[in-house]
Design a protein around this nucleic acid. Structure first.
Lengths: 352, 352
DNA sequence: TTGTAGGCGTTATCAG
DNA sequence: CTGATAACGCCTACAA
């Protein structure tokens, strides 16, 4: 590591003008100044001009700390999540995009908090963010079932919206997609193509959506009289290596499936890679489907049949609900379930 | 989209105790309370116990807004970047990981700002965040050369550190990796293997690091007397499709290269995919190398020879420098260049 | 339309 | 060790 020292740089902070300075500058009371610069209340046009000129001259900016202190709000929305696994993912990118577009016209900003740390799990630390007025509310992204903070937060009346998972608690607002419908749609698609031996690669424990997808798959098989040996339900972890492992287990077995449904796209990619390395052609000998519709799902060879969930729309709705509830000083409690859609591409076809 | 209304939920906010309440509760002045709860100054142990008991009883939490208002600091560090392209990337995941570990023991938190919006480019909006005391300082991630805000920020003495790009401005603190050394290492590796016809897939315009990698490549070729027809320098954009396009152009030409160096891993993946689809074996007929060392670089078939840059370490250093400079009320100006290392894997070999 | 008084919750300062 | 007072910068409420 090489270091270079730049020129000395000017260290002293610039003086920041206050409303008082402006008031003095133009011989008005600071209330008049406040009305012009902060309140936009009715002020004589002469005064207004004077104040605005002085503000520009002194390079004045509202001190949002004094302001928020007064209003008893921080101006920040906290995004709370397991950053370790989520932060660099496409999923979070979409989530953030959605959050951002909900922020249009709002004066709020986003702060990012990691729920992985020990003290977060009982909600103490998260709740404290609100009690200390560091955030006005929380957007909880894809919480795990073993995150025990939700109850704590709810008891303390922390305004919050859960995004990406549907919670059993009816009084906690949550926005998710219709996981079960998505799985049913893929399975129906495969059955229509003629498949009868369909296997499933599940997501990690601890995510309700993941559990939902698995249950929907099992239910579909029962409803349609498909064979479902235990080995057809492989555990997974939403990663590509996880998909590879599951595919190895499935394709090595004597009664290998003719189709594999993965609980997310990454695992489906892993399945396809393994199939390729085993010289099992996709979709010729094996159909593969995923869930998420990552951008690369369309780019890959073969392109991936998958379920599209409107992640950024979910996030946008969630953030809007939170913002609205902050304005109205109420705690949101509705549950939203967004529709998903099946995108059929090259990775699925009729079985041989 | 289906919606369900949860139970009414308790809407009124809980009353928040203040230091005054506690003072009254235990018959002491609020200064004594402040000393116990905020200052940790010397206080008689009897008083201390009384205050702590009352605080617990009233479920008291420090009001950080009043506190920060007093201290004239917001408690937030702003992370400013082009979120559209970065937020969902592995790179940002590493960056954030680094930032976070720098925050251990600090009372600061992170806020996230998008520099894509129009008004950001001249720095006005970004500077305002600081002038309005919404953030105490800024971490600028991978700024583009056409981001014109840096000069503005510097003039306004905004404490900031640029991470991931090395800037020409000597008085703006920036932390980056030694791009040129990385490229030289890959090229040397290829030349040592016997390659003489090496092509390059460049990154997007507007990133200094990207430009640096290209220049280093050209310089290496000149220094080593390698042939370098213009077509050997392909434009790219740091995406997989970009890598595919470049590879198509390179492999179709009459004097196709025996090795391709991509300015990042994603493009290298694209090159490998295209090679595969053209039945050009890697590394048999074509060696491919990247830059970044994404986790998947080791997983792929063939695994990728690439340059590892210590992204999270860079970020951690950057954040630490900023935090330290905030404590000392000074503006950092050093330039740090971190070392990179070559990781040789399966995608490179001797030419036929 | 403008100004005065007071308060938000905390800490600095200085006196006891 | 403890307390009274003032201050941070802004806004609400009321009065002129």
């Amino acid at each position: 590591m090489a270091a270079t020292k730049g020129e000395p740089a000017q260290n002293k902070a610039l003086y920041r003008a206050t409303m008082n300075d402006i008031a003095r500058e133009c011989g008005l009371s600071k209330m008049t100044v406040s009305r012009v610069l902060g309140n936009r209340a009715s002020v004589g046009s002469a005064s207004r001009r004077k104040v605005e000129a002085a503000a520009k001259k002194l390079n004045y900016e509202l001190n949002s700390m004094a302001r928020n202190f007064n209003f008893n709000r921080s101006g920040f929305i906290g995004i709370a999540m397991w950053t370790g696994t989520l932060i660099g993912s496409y999923y979070f990118g979409e989530i953030f995009r959605g959050f951002q577009s909900a922020l249009q016209g709002s004066t709020h900003h986003f702060a990012l908090f990691d729920t992985a740390s020990e003290s977060f799990n009982d909600g103490t630390k998260l709740a404290r963010l609100y009690q200390q007025r560091k955030v006005d509310g929380l957007l909880i992204v894809a919480p795990h079932t073993h995150d025990h903070f939700l109850q704590t937060l709810q008891n303390l009346r922390v305004p919050m919206v859960v995004v990406g998972e549907s919670l059993p608690e009816p009084s906690v607002c949550s926005i998710s997609c219709d996981d079960a419908a998505g799985i049913r749609a893929v399975c129906q698609h495969l059955v229509t193509l003629g498949h009868r031996r369909i296997a499933f690669v599940g997501g990690p424990d601890g995510l309700i959506s993941s559990e939902r997808r698995k249950l929907a798959f099992e239910q579909f098989c029962r409803d349609n009289g498909l064979m479902l040996p235990p080995a057809y339900i492989q555990p997974g972890d939403y990663t590509m290596p996880g998909g590879r492992r599951a595919a190895l287990a499935l394709l090595a077995a004597p009664d290998a499936p003719t189709a594999i449904v993965a609980a997310n796209d990454l695992m489906a990619f892993g399945v396809i890679e393994t199939a390729r390395s085993l010289n099992v052609s996709v979709p010729g000998e094996l159909s593969v489907a995923g869930f998420d519709d990552l951008p690369t799902a369309a780019d890959r060879f073969p392109s991936l049949t998958t379920v599209r969930q409107p992640v950024s729309t979910m996030a946008e709705h969630g953030a809007k609900i939170l913002l609205r509830s902050l304005e109205n000083h109420e705690i949101p409690s509705e549950h939203l379930t967004m529709e998903v859609s099946l995108t059929v591409r090259e990775s699925t076809g009729a079985p041989r």
